[in-house]
Amino acid sequence: METSRPLIRVVAGVVLDRQGRYLLSSRPEGKPYAGYWEFAGGKVEAGESEFAALRREFEEELGIHIETARPWLTKIHDYEHARVHLRFWRVEAGGWSGEIQAREGQKWSWQRAGDFTVSPMLPANGDLLAALAVPTQLAGRLKTGFYGENGMGGYRVVPFALAEPQHANVLIGEPELRARGKMPAAQSVWVVIDKAEQWPLIQDADVAVWRVPNREAAEAVCAVLENGVSLPLVVLADESTLAAYRRRWLEKGAHAVIADDETEFA
């Protein structure tokens, strides 16, 4: 009987520059998927924290020093050679220093969200590239949609009921999605929830929007983030809740937080 393969813990860094571009590097010769492009990183050693592993890998591979980073998305991926638990960390432009060096003979390139120009891409990174197009600074309302900017320019997501053919990103509530029985036809679908029990039901969404109506829900967001999320999680809350939880949510891996100025929760 075939034994299940152990889960290998791996970290990878999404390093950004001041133009909002992210860093990709190619896998060197001698490693599985040699020549494929990926976010740099590597295996977490025994007794090592994920952040320590991230810093070590970037020093060893690219000669840069990671000073600050925050967890982002978590993926479990089955490769031919291993089953890996991938934790991606965001490293903003001010969170690293040094000059990039190809210490393992690999190539490296700065890319823009939604417009990458290198190939072939490592299979596990397809969803990551799409998620990088979602701005981390957003404004707006559930009734009219959200807007922001990424490396390619303006970005907007509109309520499904108001969407027209030119709208690539749509917003829909989990009850409405459940009633439809299928995802809307769109480039990305943002699904709105307000209860912890809805979270497992929306894992096929491109982005989750968690509207926080009370402290219990705020703590539930923290618990979900602690376990790692596989899709960008945007948290929507009133100003007083944001004041109490914004930092915790972001430090645990929330993609973005938005102030909710609508007085009634659905």
Score class of each variant (00 low, 15 high):
203 Q>I: 01
128 L>F: 12
243 A>V: 07
252 K>F: 02
122 L>E: 15
14 V>F: 08
47 G>F: 10
256 A>L: 04
17 D>S: 01
111 Q>N: 10
49 S>G: 05
142 L>R: 05
137 Q>T: 14
150 N>W: 14
160 F>R: 05
222 C>K: 09
4 S>V: 14
15 V>R: 00
117 T>H: 15
216 E>K: 05
262 E>R: 03
156 R>D: 10
3 T>I: 12
45 E>I: 12
94 G>A: 05
198 Q>P: 00
28 P>V: 13
43 K>P: 13
263 T>E: 06
11 V>E: 13
182 K>G: 02
1 M>Y: 12
188 S>A: 08
131 A>H: 04
151 G>S: 12
238 D>G: 00
235 V>W: 00
32 P>H: 07
162 L>T: 11
161 A>P: 07
18 R>H: 10
76 I>G: 09
137 Q>P: 12
104 E>V: 12
177 L>V: 01
248 R>N: 05
116 F>K: 13
109 S>F: 09
100 I>Q: 02
106 Q>C: 11
226 E>T: 13
60 E>V: 09
22 Y>P: 05
26 S>T: 09
204 D>M: 03
96 W>C: 01
219 E>V: 13
77 H>W: 10
216 E>I: 05
61 E>W: 09
230 S>C: 11
94 G>Y: 08
5 R>V: 09
244 A>K: 03
144 T>F: 11
62 L>I: 09
263 T>K: 01
38 E>S: 11
216 E>H: 03
50 E>V: 12
239 E>L: 14
79 Y>N: 14
57 E>H: 15
104 E>S: 12
21 R>Y: 12
61 E>C: 06
153 G>I: 08
245 Y>R: 06
53 A>I: 13
21 R>I: 10
165 P>L: 07
16 L>S: 04
162 L>M: 15
93 A>P: 07
1 M>D: 09
40 A>W: 00
82 A>D: 15
114 G>D: 15
203 Q>F: 03
138 L>M: 10
80 E>R: 10
17 D>L: 01
164 E>S: 14
201 L>W: 00
205 A>P: 01
223 A>C: 11
131 A>P: 02
144 T>K: 10
243 A>Y: 05
88 F>C: 08
70 R>P: 00
4 S>R: 14
